[in-house]
Simulated scan of single mutants.
Amino acid sequence: MRGGLALLAVAALGPGCARASSEVEPAGGQQLQVPAARALDAYAAGLRAAHTARVAAAKRWGLRRVPLTAPPPPAKKPEITTRDGFEVDDHAERGLPPVFTTVPTEEKIVFLTIDDGDEKDPAFLRMMSDLKVPYTAFLSDYLVKDDYAYFKKMQARGVTLNNHTLNHPYLPGLSYAAQKREICGMQQVIRERYGTRPVLFRPPFGNYNEDTLLAARSCGITHVPIWNEEVFADRWDYREWDREIHRGDIVLTHFRGREDWPGTMPDMVRSFLDKVTAEGYAVARLEDYL
C-alpha cells in the first residue's frame, strides 16, 4: 500500500523529493524514484490536515456538506466563443470580445462571480478565506469608492477585481463616447487603486450593444462573461428552461445584505455552496479557464 501511495505522491511532492527518495526497480528493469517513508508520511499528514481544516470550516459556517475541491485548471485553455444569439454583427470576424454564459469543460465545475460592490461584509471575507472558495468580482466605482480598502483585502486573498463600469448605467442607451468613459474610466480606477488593468468586463444588467464591445476592446477587455444562474440569499434564478446547473456555468450574485435580501452575504454563500455541493459540483476560478 505504501508503494502505491509513493507513486501517487511523487508529482505532488515535486522535484525536491528526489533527495529524500529511494530507488525501486520495477519488473521492466527501469529504476523509479519514490519518496522515502518519511516524505510520504508528511505528505499524507498534510492531506489529512487540509481535509480536517475544510471539515471544520464547513461546520463553522453552517454548511450541510464540505465543499468539493476543483480539479487543477487545464494546461490548454478551452476555446471561448460568443454564445449563439448573443452576437453583434460580424462579432468574431471583427475580433470583438466573446460574450458567454458557460465555459466549455467536461469537468463538473461552476464559477462564482459577484457584482457591483455595495455590501462590504467582513464576515464574507472571513468565510471565503476559511472555506478557500474561489470567486471573481466585478466592481462599479460609485459603490466601492467609499471603501477601496475592503476590496484591497479581497485582492490580497487572491480575488481578481474586474470591470463593471463607473456608475452602472444601461449602456445601450449611451453613445459610444459615453460608454467608453464608463468602461475605460473603470479600467483606470482599478489600475490606480489595485495595480492591475482588468481583462474581464461585465455590462450592467447584462445589456450591451456593438458600441459596448468596441469600447471595451479599446481599453484592454478580452472577455465579457455574463451568467447562466443567479443566486440570492433565499433562492436561485435560471436562464435555461430546464432550471438546472450545467458543467462550466457562470453563476452571478451581488454584494448585498439585509437591506436588499432576506439574509447576509454568508447566507448567500451557504445557499450557493449547499446546492452546488449536493449536486456534485466544485467551484473553480474563472480566470484559470480564460
Rank of each mutant, 00 (worst) to 15 (best):
I183R: 06
P198M: 08
R258S: 12
Q155M: 11
V283P: 03
G257N: 15
L200E: 02
D237C: 12
E210A: 12
D141G: 12
D211Q: 14
Q155S: 10
W261E: 15
M186W: 05
P225Q: 10
G158L: 07
A278I: 08
A278R: 12
L213Q: 02
A215E: 02
L143W: 13
I250W: 08
K152H: 07
P172I: 10
E192G: 00
T165L: 06
Q179W: 02
T160W: 09
C219P: 03
R270F: 07
G220Y: 11
L200Q: 03
G206W: 06
K275I: 01
N207R: 14
I183N: 05
D146E: 14
A278P: 00
L213V: 06
Q187Y: 08
Q187R: 04
K152L: 11
F151E: 09
A216V: 10
T165H: 03
G173W: 02
G173E: 13
G173P: 01
V159R: 06
I250E: 08
R270D: 11
M186N: 13
S218W: 02
Q155P: 03
D147C: 10
Y281A: 09
D237A: 13
V159F: 09
C219A: 08
G158M: 10
D211W: 06
L166T: 05
R258H: 09
L213C: 06
H223V: 01
E192K: 13
R193V: 00
R181D: 15
D242P: 10
F205A: 06
K153I: 00
A233T: 13
M268N: 14
E259Q: 15
V199M: 09
F272V: 06
H223A: 08
